[in-house]
Amino acid sequence: MTSLPEGSDQGGSTAEPRPLVCARCGTAARGGRPVTWTCSVENGVRQYFCDVCSRENLRSIEGRLDSAWW
């Protein structure tokens, strides 16, 4: 027996991706992953930050400080 990808052999539909939300201010992204947003991996967790929060905290981001320090 061969399994189909994404668990489709279970009769259910694949899970829809959750909307992307800024980890700092909570702004929701429109239309997928905006190219102006920043992605950071902190303690093994991927976090996304909107363009406004990214700009406001650019020096901390470049200094590789975790967002808890901003």
Score class of each variant (00 low, 15 high):
L20S: 04
C50I: 02
S60T: 11
T2N: 13
T38S: 12
N57E: 01
S67E: 08
E16I: 07
D9N: 05
T2W: 09
C50E: 01
S60A: 14
L20I: 15
D51Q: 11
E62P: 01
V45N: 10
L4D: 02
R59W: 06
D66R: 12
R59G: 07
F49E: 00
T2H: 13
R33Y: 13
S40A: 15
T38A: 13
W69A: 13
C50W: 01
R46L: 14
P5S: 09
L58I: 15
C39Y: 15
S40T: 14
R24Y: 09
G12R: 12
N57S: 05
G63W: 08
I61L: 12
T14F: 04
A15H: 02
R46A: 15
S13W: 03
T27C: 05
R55T: 12
R33H: 11
E62M: 13
C39S: 15
V45G: 05
E56W: 03
S60G: 15
I61S: 00
S13R: 05
A28F: 04
P5N: 08
C53M: 02
G11L: 00
V21G: 00
L4Q: 05
P34C: 07
R30N: 10
P34Y: 06
W37L: 04
G11D: 00
P34K: 07
G26Q: 04
W70A: 07
P17T: 09
S13Q: 08
G11I: 00
V41C: 10
S54T: 15
S54F: 04
G44P: 01
A29W: 01
S67R: 08
A15D: 09
T36I: 08
E56N: 14
T27Q: 11
V41L: 08
E16K: 10
R33S: 11
V45M: 10
C50G: 03
V45D: 09
G7D: 03
C50K: 01
S67V: 07
T27I: 07
T38E: 09
Q10H: 06
R18F: 09
N57T: 07
M1R: 05
R18V: 12
W69Y: 14
P19D: 10
G32C: 08
L58H: 13
V21P: 00
C39W: 14
V21L: 06
D9P: 00
W69H: 13
F49R: 03
E62G: 06
G26S: 03
E42K: 05
N57A: 03
R46W: 13
C39D: 15
V45E: 12
W37Y: 09
W37K: 05
T38W: 07
C50Q: 01
P17F: 08
G32K: 09
T14G: 10
R46K: 15
Q47I: 05
W37A: 06
D51N: 12
R64T: 09
S40Q: 15
P34Q: 08
Q47N: 14
C22P: 05
L58E: 15
S3R: 11
F49V: 07
A15Y: 04
C25G: 03
R24I: 13
W69D: 15
S60W: 10
R55I: 07
G12D: 09
